[in-house]
Amino acid sequence: MVVEAEVIRQNYLRHNKKFPHVWCPGCGNGIVLGSLLRAIHSLGYDKDDVVVASGIGCSSRMTTYIDFNTLHTTHGRALTFATGVKLAKPRLRVITVMGDGDATAIGGNHFIHAARRNINITAIIVNNSTYGMTGGQYSPTTPYGSRSTTSVYGHVEHDFSISELAITAGASFVARGTVYHAAHLDRMIEQAIVKRGFAVVEVISNCHVQHGRRNKLGGAIQMINTFRDQAVPVAKAKKMSAEEMEGKFTIGVLCDVEKPISTEEYARIRHESCQLPGELHDEDDQDY
């Protein structure tokens, strides 16, 4: 275990270039970073074949620290850049990391369309129920009644579920995990990366500094422990009544279906219509 952790630390972090990082002590972002690296490591991918794109926010800073082809884009737009990369070079494995505000407020349109298109990209969304980086304003996942720097009287709007949104919009694979269940999160991310089609992992995370503090949810440890108490595995949740699920949420694979992938369909069109066989490179076209 310890040796493995050291191997990952040595191989996948840009330790000599970009540390220390910008995150607050105890932030869940570090746990998500660890899970992502462990998942890629256990899949044995060459890091040159992996592209990680992110938007703007605390969580999106992740791309600065990890040693892949990394693309730190504009706020909410990671999936649009990732779409271009994937279509231009289908052999690359493209993963995006986004915050809840990034992916579902400013980037909401791109998110639902990436899911509808079912492009072969993995989307990891760190849901900390707030805009961490800009100082704790309310986000699309801030619960009703919560206090934030822009809802000091209590939030009057209702939140939505990122996972349900992804399922409805057409994603092939949707899973939810938390930063408490790190080993489980490793598996969810691994499955999402392997899945062919648009795959989403919603990670319930803590921003104790901006969100927890204002809502008396405790520090990092207390918040993370709360996730342990609130999370119910999918199979168990099926046997529970609505009242029993009150204040809780499901974790695990929420959706896993097979459907045509637009990148593959397009590659077929290209093969059928290409008039310049010299320009066709099957290898480049191979969609992983």
Binding site: L71, T74, T80, A82, T83, G84, K89
Partner: peptide
């Protein structure tokens, strides 16, 4: 965004 991504992929 997409054309920037494609250009970065060569």
């Amino acid at each position: 965004g997409a054309i920037i991504g494609a250009s970065l992929a060569g």
